[in-house]
């Protein structure tokens, strides 16, 4: 499959005039294929949020290029085409809902793109059903829970029918139930509608669900690969002050104590099976 997003030797400085300021992104290159579900992890200040804002031309690289479906984000004339292809969902659901009624907020993006009225209606209904918020379409956003608000924000992006959705820590401000709702929705969009997902997160339990995990540290890519490979390097992740899922860590420590266990487990179920096998064995 062709590369949908290509990031080529990107460096980014928040203050270009200050020669001494450090780079938030330091020579990053990566490519993402259509339909992939990529998780980007890293601790605070690792540059993962900065990277997420490069995918739809909110930030433009100081050096290097970001190419989205053949369009360079530096090209001012294509900015709106790029933003129609790549949607960005932010951390705080309250700050990204514009209108006082759910369905009108979802329609906001389509209205800006100048679609005819009937098409907007169709897309809004379709997007609200996709995130399971159709019954709430006439409600006011203030009455919704955090998880529901975040799903409305996602619907607002889906209504524009993007090929890729970038989510910048969408679950950081939610309770566990809201987190499950949002991640479940995101996974469904990826599997059923084939939308490329780039999920920025610091919850390793979420990163495990992705097809591919990119670990960032101080503006550089530390490792990049399938979750099973990335989380097998517990030592490396620990060295860079990163967590691993609890199940992974438990097995890792038991192995260090000399028990015979599989190379890497990612969730509780695998962990239980591994330990059960060990006890029986």
């Amino acid at each position: 499959m062709e590369d949908f997003i290509r990031v080529e030797n990107v460096c980014f400085q928040y203050d270009e005039n200050d020669k001494n300021s450090s780079y938030a992104l330091d020579n990053i290159s990566l490519s993402i294929k259509k339909g992939e579900f990529v998780a980007v992890v890293g601790h605070n200040g690792s540059g993962k949020s900065t990277l997420s804002k490069h995918f739809n031309a909110i930030y433009v690289p100081t050096f290097g290029d970001v190419i989205i479906g053949g369009m360079n984000t530096k090209d001012d004339d294509r900015i709106f085409d790029i933003r129609k292809k790549v949607g960005l969902v932010l951390q705080n659901p309250d700050n990204q809902i514009v209108a006082g009624i759910v369905e009108e907020d979802v329609a906001f993006g389509c209205e800006n793109s100048g679609f005819p009225q009937k098409k907007i209606r169709e897309r809004v209904d379709c997007a609200l059903k996709a995130v399971g918020m159709y019954e709430y379409r006439t409600h006011s956003p203030d009455k919704l829970s955090g998880g529901q608000k975040q799903r409305v924000a996602i619907a607002g992006i889906i209504a524009m029918e993007p090929e890729c959705i970038v989510l910048d820590e969408p679950t950081a401000m939610l309770d566990p139930q809201g987190r499950d709702e949002v991640i479940g929705t995101v996974m469904r969009l990826n599997k059923e509608m084939g939308i490329t997902i780039i999920l920025i997160t610091h919850y390793m339990e979420e990163a495990v669900l992705a097809d591919r995990v990119i670990v960032m540290d101080s503006g550089k890519i530390l490792t990049d690969g399938i979750p099973r490979k990335v989380f097998s390097e517990v030592g490396l992740l620990k060295k860079h002050r990163l967590d691993v899922p609890q199940a992974t860590e438990l097995i890792y420590r038991l192995k260090n104590c000399g028990y015979e266990l599989p190379e890497c487990v990612l969730n509780e179920e695998e962990c239980v099976q591994a330990i059960a096998a060990l006890i029986k064995g």
């Binding site: 804002k53 739809n56 909110i58 709106f80 933003r83 129609k84 949607g87 960005l88 932010l90 700050n95 990204q96 514009v98 369905e103 009108e104 329609a107 906001f108 993006g109 389509c110 209205e111 800006n112 793109s113 100048g114 679609f115 005819p116 009225q117 907007i120 209606r121 809004v124 924000a153 607002g156 992006i157 524009m160």
Partner: peptide, 17 residues
């Protein structure tokens, strides 16, 4: 930023649902 992400461009060429 959220409005820019959703192609907000002032009132130009905007339609309503």
């Amino acid at each position: 930023m959220a409005m820019e992400c959703r192609c907000y461009n002032g009132g130009k060429g905007r339609t309503r649902m």
